[in-house]
Design a protein around this nucleic acid. Structure first.
Lengths: 210, 210
DNA sequence: AGTGTTTAATTAAACGGTAATTTAATAAAA
DNA sequence: TTTTATTAAATTACCGTTTAATTAAACACT
């Protein structure tokens, strides 16, 4: 049930403009005037389509989360269901997708993370996302480890992902995807049984042969 | 050269009040009225001792960083210079000190991290701190690994610390220190040579015997 | 097809509120 | 009595939202 009329145009347009504004001046200075100017409209439009600035902020966060979810799902889809190492790496790739590590996305994301600590609505959204990452990782790890160990390692990998990402947010060179992949691959190679690594190499080889 | 007169009282008092305000209502709603009321004074005092709200914010961030630095230094001092594993764990303990993981400190810290993306002054402070953590870790790891490998592992450990910390900020139960220590200990046990682990046990035993 | 009418989309300008800062006066200390 | 510390109130600057008017699009009827 796609919104009809101008809403289908204006809503995504204003969400994009919100991220642009946060990217260029930071959340605290991203006021409705600036946001609407990026979208080429007047501030009143925000109230018309989102009921107010708060509504736009929430919609923007939902968009960021949806985009991340889609990114991970896409990477997982291109991966054999039994290739445990490959699937964990796919989750990592999804989190460090070109779109997800753009300065615009990174700054918006971090601004929301800080905001979520005091806005119950945003806090709930962020929690769901956090749990989803853990649950994705746990699902794969349970194929190799007992539940408790799988849960433990899932938290470690999630921390590595978020930690590298967070440090990248403050780094002038941006998020270092290569480092992220290297660090997590190294971690898994020291933790996973040799059989799982071999199996992954086999899947890689057959995929390459296609 | 400690500031004299009331400055020595008011400045720490207002910095503490700033963290309290951020803790209870979030950065965006922590206005000078609320901050000064926590300190039991009027808003004008902030301008008198910090030249404005911005000055107070920056001073608060400096205090947070100073406190973290002191915490790490204290933990390292209580650790034998040759106990590599012990010293890395000390760095972790310093970062997850009781004071550092208080809701007040965590919320203030994350607010500043978000802010630093667009305030050059705060950005600089944050960068220095980030580099210091890396450099501390690298220094210890270089005793065991070649420089390149040491550098790589330092980034992984730093990411684990920041990642667990960041995830704790959004967790209703707060930062999980036990998890942090467990995850990083587990990481090191899979990465460090057996000799280093044995050496650590020896240091632990002698320390216990005192 | 052409014309009047309704509806949707958009805007400019005004409004109400809140925030940081300045000022000028007051109280306390030296 | 000079200096330091503090305040209450005034000032200035935004910012989000509302309102009332305007433009553009869709529709109905001949």
């Amino acid at each position: 049930m796609p919104k009809q009329g101008m809403a289908a145009i204006r809503r995504p347009q204003l969400i994009e403009a919100t991220m642009q504004a946060i990217d260029s001046v930071g959340f605290s200075r991203a006021n409705v005037q600036l946001i609407s100017s990026y979208a080429g409209v007047t501030p009143a439009i925000i109230n018309h389509y989102f009921g107010g600035k708060d509504g736009l902020i929430e919609a923007t966060m939902r968009q960021v989360l949806r985009s991340l979810g889609a990114s991970v799902r896409q990477q997982l889809a291109a991966c054999h269901p039994d290739d445990v190492l490959g699937r964990i790496q796919a989750i990592v790739c999804g989190n460090f997708d070109q779109e997800q590590i753009s300065p615009k996305a990174v700054k918006t994301w971090l601004a929301f993370w800080a905001l979520a600590m005091h806005e119950p609505q945003l806090h709930r959204l962020q929690r769901v996302n956090e749990q989803r990452l853990l649950s994705h990782l746990r699902l794969e790890l349970k194929r190799v480890f007992e539940p408790e160990r799988a849960s433990f390692m899932a938290q470690a990998i999630a921390a590595l992902i978020d930690g590298i990402w967070l440090r990248g947010a403050l780094n002038p060179n941006g998020v270092d995807v290569a480092l992220a992949q290297h660090v997590i691959k190294d971690y898994l190679e020291h933790q996973l049984p040799v059989a799982v690594l071999k199996q992954h190499q086999a899947f890689q080889a057959t995929a390459h042969a296609l």
